[in-house]
Computed example of a mutant assay.
Amino acid sequence: MHRDDAVSRRGRAEARFTELMVEVGPELLNYFERRIGDGGEDLLSELMATAWRRNADLPMDHEQARMWLFGIARNLLRNGVRSNLRRSRLENALRDAIPANGSDVAEQLAIRDAVQRLDPILAEIVTLVHWEGLTIAEAGRLQGVPASTARGRYQRAREALREALTVQRSPA
């Protein structure tokens, strides 16, 4: 009997979640598309996955549940903006370190080459932060180290990249 109750509760939770997403999903898609244009479907999929993982937190009140979903949507957009800002800052910093007469392809190759020549632990933190959009603390958690260690690694990686890219642009 206990197992049947759990299955029944899970079925009701799935049905409630599905019903809510069918109703609110189009609103959320419009919310994303008004703010970013293309790519709203991807964000909606990410929102649905996040909301499903946190289904136990879904408020029982319908309007509160709707607003909870919009809160997740807002956080996804903010995280995307932060990731794009970090990526843009790195690209600008690295572009400043590369000769102005180099093409975009040459710049990209120089940057990738410099990152690949880093110690693997330092290369990983750079790619996690700038190419995957994680914060330094998140990258540290993924590497299994405290945020302070991750910050130190990131600083060493930046210094090594700056030096490598400066040496590449110096006349031989």
Rank of each mutant, 00 (worst) to 15 (best):
L85N: 10
E46M: 04
E23T: 09
V81M: 08
R54C: 02
E46Y: 01
P120Q: 06
L28G: 09
Q168G: 10
R95A: 15
G144M: 04
R158S: 10
L109S: 10
R53I: 02
G71F: 04
R34I: 01
V81S: 01
L134E: 09
A160K: 06
V126F: 05
P120H: 04
A106H: 10
R10N: 11
L20S: 03
A150N: 07
A137L: 06
G144Q: 05
A139F: 01
A137P: 07
Q168H: 10
Y31H: 12
R9N: 10
P99N: 12
A51V: 04
D104I: 11
F17R: 01
L28E: 11
G37K: 03
G37E: 06
L134I: 03
A137S: 11
D104E: 15
L47C: 10
L90A: 15
E132W: 08
L128D: 13
G37A: 02
F17S: 02
L58G: 00
G25V: 06
D113F: 09
L44W: 04
A51F: 05
R78G: 06
P59W: 00
A160R: 07
L85C: 08
A106W: 12
D104T: 13
S103F: 08
G40M: 01
D104K: 12
G25A: 08
T135S: 15
R153K: 06
A73H: 02
E23A: 12
A56Q: 03
Y154A: 02
T18L: 07
G37D: 01
R169S: 14
A6R: 05
E27F: 13
A51R: 00
G80S: 13
R74A: 11
R74W: 08
L20K: 03
L165N: 03
G140E: 03
S170P: 04
A100S: 14
M48F: 06
E159C: 03
R95I: 09
E138D: 06
R156A: 01
L134W: 10
V145I: 15
N79Y: 11
W52E: 07
G40Y: 06
L128S: 14
Q116I: 08
P171Y: 13
A139T: 04
E107T: 14
L47W: 09
A164C: 03
I111K: 10
A114W: 00
M67I: 12
S8G: 04
R53S: 06
W68I: 01
H62S: 12
P26M: 06
G102R: 09
I36E: 11
R35Q: 15
E163C: 09
T127G: 02
R78Y: 08
I72K: 08
L28F: 11
A114N: 02
R158P: 06
S170W: 11
R169Q: 15
R156T: 00
R3G: 06
I136G: 04
A147K: 14
V129S: 09
G144I: 01
V105I: 14
V167Y: 07
T135Y: 05
T50M: 13
S148V: 14
R112I: 07
A160P: 00
Q108L: 14
R86H: 03
W68V: 00
A100C: 07
